[in-house]
Design a protein around this nucleic acid. Sequence first.
RNA 1: GCGAAUGUAGCACAAUGGAUAGUGUAGUGGCCUCCGAAGCCAUUGAUCCGGGUUCGACUCCCGGCAUUCGCACCA
Length: 586
Amino acid sequence: MHVSFNLAADLDAALAAAAVAAGLPDAAAFLPEVRTADPRHGDFQANGVLGFAKARKLNPRATAEQLVAALPPALRESFDLVIAGPGFINFTLKPAALLAWVRAFDSVARLRTGAAAAHAGQTWVVDYSSPNTAKQMHVGHLRSAVIGEAICRLLEFTGARVIRDNHLGDWGTQFGKLIYGYKRWVDRDALARDAIEELERLYKLGNNATPDGSPELEEARRELVKLQNGDAENVALWRTFSEVSLAAFQQIYDRLGIRFDYHLGESFYNDKVDRVYRELEETKLAEISEGALVVFHPEHPRFKTQPFLVRKADGASNYASTDLATALYRTEHFNAHGIVVVTDFRQADHFEQLFLTVKKWFAARGYRVPELHHVTFGAVTGEDGKALKTRSGDVIRLKALLDEAVDRAYAIVSEKNAELPEAERRAIAQIVGVGAVQYADLSQNRSSNYVFSWDKMLALDGNTAPYLLYAIARIHSIFRRAGVTPGDPATESAATAPETPAEIALARKLTKFPDAIRLAVETLRPHYLGLYLFELAGDYSSFNNADKVLVDDATVRARRLLLCARTLLQLETGLQLLGLRTLTRM
RNA sequence: GCGAAUGUAGCACAAUGGAUAGUGUAGUGGCCUCCGAAGCCAUUGAUCCGGGUUCGACUCCCGGCAUUCGCACCA
């Protein structure tokens, strides 16, 4: 028996076909709009009948009845159908169909195969994290890294070849001041001990020593020009800055489970901006204004007067130049079908201008235009609603933040589960602490600001990583007691269809996994998956409370173990797609 | 000034134009001789304001208000 992964999509197709079969007027225009439903109404509901019928002066309920009558009879073996309210068609999976679906999607591989149709054969470049070199990563870098990685994993899961590209801020005027400071005050011991710390100190010294209009500033500028002209000493220094920065960043990335394929920073595009200037001028998209090369968009209410500045009046490039070159490189070199850039919402204007320009430029040149997405997110604030700072007013370093998360998780684990060996508690604290930080970011809509609260992210109840990890630990615990491996075919073969209300509710929830994935990846909003996992864990907890799994009756036991195994599979798969690690005890 | 994002219970969040706006916390009342009570069950409480479109609006459109942010050579 073939069991479809995405049942909603199946029903949608069946209803569209039924409209034709039933001979509805204008049937080709009928959009069934099948959605997951409130469980009180069913598993899926078709919303499209009302609008379709009303627009054609048909009776919606009568139209719904015609549609239902024209559905293939086999559908009724899987679903109970009800026409409800003004013309909704409700579909409720029968227990046997629930069993079939739950049986069928029994591994990560099967889930992935089901989901992979969405982006099969496509290449997507995801540009995220992207810190500036020679500086510490701080709390402001958290969201891009966490959200970006989740998006990468979701795209991969849905069939894409994903290229993770760290677009480092490794070029610009600040390097003149840094080199100026370095050449005068570098402390070699400090550099060996904590390179980024020392580079930050040197930059501050260099910056303070070069006020506007001073001869020192002129000297710093000369260092920058030497760097740009390929002076061996300065280039070597700059290279060192990048290397030690990357090494420091990688320590953070390791803890967050991030591994980039490329680190093509701004410097990589230095020799690629001339082509951008040339082509923008040749296509008449760019013009000279106040000495700078700019692009206006006459059709746009604001950008017809607010310029997109692609080359500065002094002839130097800026981030518009390099971002344009970057878009071209990703399209030509990686053959990207889609490009996703994950930065905070303050850069929305820049990316809107960038994408407008890219589309016109590529169209004028006959280059294929990839899908371009700017994935934005709000600020991280303290509980007072202001930007998150330490008590003394400094920025919070990402390393310190992750350390504190782990320390706090360790304290909680030790309190709740003191009998576990210390080494295991330490390991658990790593997963729970870092996971709590990641999940706090992924559990809510990225568009809004997010209020950073240790107590909330580390709470054991509510939509948090610890709650989800706890559900996972409890399921593992049951399998340990049963002496059975989750997903063991011999155990599951005896399973029957779900019967109790809690079993049915859990099984019904499990069939909604495809929709959660689809929604999360379509909107590039991972919180839809997080929300699903939280609801799944809630349904599991209710089931766990209502129905004892390890009962004597072998059939009942088998079917409940089956539900446990699939819940576990989806929770683990889902959390891993969000970038978290999972555990078996906590 | 122009523009963007956000605005949902005391607090923090959800809601893919659909049915009685969901959840967590805090509050109240229950449930451990029972697989992990880090849990479960029940219950009180909300769409910034005013118009409009629609069979149907937290959602879309128009006009306000509030908060945050952006707007010529930083990225």
